[in-house]
């Protein structure tokens, strides 16, 4: 039995036994190479699940939908390691209760082979080492290094050109599991702290606010980057911020669910180099 059939029947079993109220997975998309999120509430609906190497979205973002888990019931979700990492971060930030999430884990090797991951509860997964050694895909790394070598002026120009394209559609925020604020700072409008204007300055404001808020919290799933309709290389921003946090605090977000959020905790030996 292939992984797709295995997970279809497992999802159906979870639903028919009543263990979970909902399974979030993937279904066929509008073209042959597209997959779309699919929500199954009945065993029949679970037969529509598709699971193959095209299933790259991070579905954990749906778990923080307002009200979804407030009834205390369980939800099962198809997750790759980056999704599992997101769950760890969400638990450590008290946004999810571990017992409410059933993980149907899978990994995609070389962009082709898909294998199931053992374990169904978040505590079954030890992904710490894997995450530490995780580097972005070669083309991203290459680009990150290229930017690193730029002068400050060149770097500013690089980001200015990209951010100038931003239309403030907030797709990056909406697909991000870590952007769970019920009211994002840019939507707080009494008073309007952050301008809604999508001029270059306003776009800088938005993209910098998001970069800061994701520092030490990003699961590196690349959802923001893929979602951006104007192709801003957002994962470069988050990769750089993550690296900064690892270097400064030896902290890599999402290694396990017992972590204390790095910017919400301290250690005696934290570096104080930034304090004058």
């Amino acid at each position: 039995m292939g992984i797709q059939e295995q997970y279809r029947s497992e999802a159906a079993a979870l639903l028919s036994s009543g263990e979970v109220k909902l399974v979030i997975g993937f279904g066929a998309g509008s073209t042959a190479d597209r997959r779309r999120p699919l929500f199954a509430r009945t065993p029949d609906e679970a037969q529509k699940f598709v699971l193959d190497a095209a299933c790259i979205a991070n579905l954990s973002t749906y778990l923080v939908t307002e009200g979804l888990l407030s009834d205390g019931k369980k939800v099962a979700v198809f997750l790759k390691p980056d999704g599992i990492r997101s769950i760890n971060i969400l638990i450590s930030e008290a946004q999810l209760k571990p017992e409410q999430v059933v993980i149907l884990g899978y990994a995609i090797e070389n962009g082709k082979e898909i294998t199931p991951l053992e374990g169904r509860n978040i505590s079954d997964f030890s992904i710490g080492e894997q995450i530490r050694s995780l580097t972005p895909p070669p083309h991203i790394l290459q680009e990150a290094e290229r930017i690193e070598e730029m002068s400050a002026t060149e770097r500013f120009e690089f980001w200015k050109e990209h951010f100038a394209k931003c239309i403030k559609c907030y797709a990056c925020r909406q697909v991000c599991p870590m952007c769970y604020c019920r009211r994002c700072i840019v939507d707080v409008n009494q008073p309007q702290w952050v301008s809604t204007s999508s001029h270059t300055l306003g776009n800088f404001e938005w993209n910098l606010v998001r970069a800061f808020h994701l520092a030490g919290r990003c699961a590196a799933c690349g959802a923001c980057d893929r979602a951006c309709p104007v192709n801003i290389p957002l994962r470069l921003v988050n990769y750089r911020m993550g690296k900064e946090v690892i270097d400064a605090f030896d902290y890599c977000a999402g290694e396990n669910s017992n972590q204390k959020p790095v910017l919400a905790s301290f250690k005696q030996d934290d570096p104080e180099t930034f304090i004058l």
Binding site: K168, C169, A171, S195, A227
Partner: peptide
């Protein structure tokens, strides 16, 4: 609409969507 994440990409990339807001900056 279950899977709609609520971003504005469809509206902002639409050749006919025309809604706007007035803001004092």
């Amino acid at each position: 609409a279950l899977r709609c994440v609520g971003c504005g990409s469809c509206t902002f990339l639409c050749p006919t969507c025309h809604c706007f807001d007035i803001q004092d900056e």
